[in-house]
Computed example of a mutant assay.
Amino acid sequence: MPKNSSAYYALQVRTADASSIRYLYLKSHTDFSEKVGAPLFVAGLGVSYDESVLTELFEIFGAVSQVALHQDKTSALVVFASPSSLKKALRTAAESKALTVAFKEPTETFGLKDWVEQHKAKTPGNRVLQQQLDEWMAQWEAQESQRQAAAATDAADEGWTVVTKQRGRKKNTDSGGTSVGSVAGAVAAAAKSRKSPKQLLDFYRFQARDRRRDNVLELQQQFEQDKKKIAEWKASRRFKPY
């Protein structure tokens, strides 16, 4: 329990259900400008203490003529009609007697406790943070899979066969390390016809890549033609491999 000092007296105030206890600090206010009644300075007020609550509380000691709350609402000035009421209030606090009030303290948090609760809400802990990260990663992976599937569909529509990496297999690459896939002949021919004859060969990286691709296509076409010739020779019995 707070100790009384030469300047202030601690008055213990309890709610009717004994759910909370608050200490109000009382002091005789001698510098009161209006020379009417007996002023008492009260500090340590709760957020639920207004003029009506203070009037009801201190009327136990005598008639209260005026109550003025400070701007910050943590202190107030209670003016008794009689100096004897002021002395009775100070004597009750000095004897460490408790007062019981009918109202209840608010259950919501205020001030520093409210700031602490807000900080805890912003930092829920490692377990909740890990769960949020897992959800975000799962959502990102799903979006990435959809993006890759859409890109593969677009490439297939343009005549490209997408070469994907599979476990236990390697990509087909040429001597330059370029991935090779089958390309529709009509698409490749159209792309080749659109090239400007004034372009410098192998000036850009994509030109060298396209040239290697065209070479592969020519080899594939030559291979198909050779297969047809061999088939024709076999049919005419002109093909004698031995």
Rank of each mutant, 00 (worst) to 15 (best):
Q222W: 09
R91W: 15
F32Y: 09
D72N: 12
L129I: 11
V116F: 14
S82E: 10
T164P: 01
D134A: 15
L26W: 00
A149Y: 06
T100F: 13
E108I: 03
K87P: 13
P2E: 02
D226K: 07
W160C: 01
F203G: 12
L54Q: 01
K165W: 14
A98Q: 05
S145W: 06
S65Y: 02
A16H: 15
A191Q: 06
R22W: 08
L219I: 06
R167G: 07
N126Y: 06
K122D: 02
S20R: 02
E108Y: 10
P197Q: 11
E56F: 10
E105A: 12
E95L: 13
E108D: 12
S65M: 08
G46T: 03
A189L: 14
F223C: 15
F80R: 00
N4T: 08
L200K: 11
T164D: 04
K229T: 07
G125N: 07
W160K: 01
Q12C: 06
Q207K: 06
K227V: 07
E224R: 15
D31F: 10
L26P: 00
L129N: 14
V128Y: 05
V47G: 06
E95I: 10
Y25C: 00
V79R: 00
K120H: 13
F110V: 09
A208H: 10
R213W: 04
L99R: 01
P197T: 09
S6I: 04
D50A: 11
A16M: 11
R147W: 08
Q207L: 06
A208W: 08
D202E: 15
V183P: 01
V128H: 09
R22F: 11
I230H: 05
S84G: 11
S52K: 14
S82K: 05
G44A: 08
S33C: 14
D202N: 08
L133I: 14
S20A: 08
W160S: 00
K104R: 11
S65D: 12
G168K: 04
A191L: 15
E224L: 06
R212Q: 07
R194M: 13
E141S: 14
K97F: 10
S196R: 01
S19G: 12
A231F: 11
Q199K: 14
V216E: 08
P83K: 00
A98F: 02
G181N: 09
Q66D: 06
Y9W: 12
K227E: 09
V78S: 04
V163H: 09
L90S: 00
V162W: 07
F61Y: 05
T30L: 14
N215A: 15
Q139T: 11
G168T: 03
A152P: 02
T107I: 15
V101H: 03
D214H: 07
L57I: 13
A76P: 01
F80I: 01
P106C: 10
F80A: 00
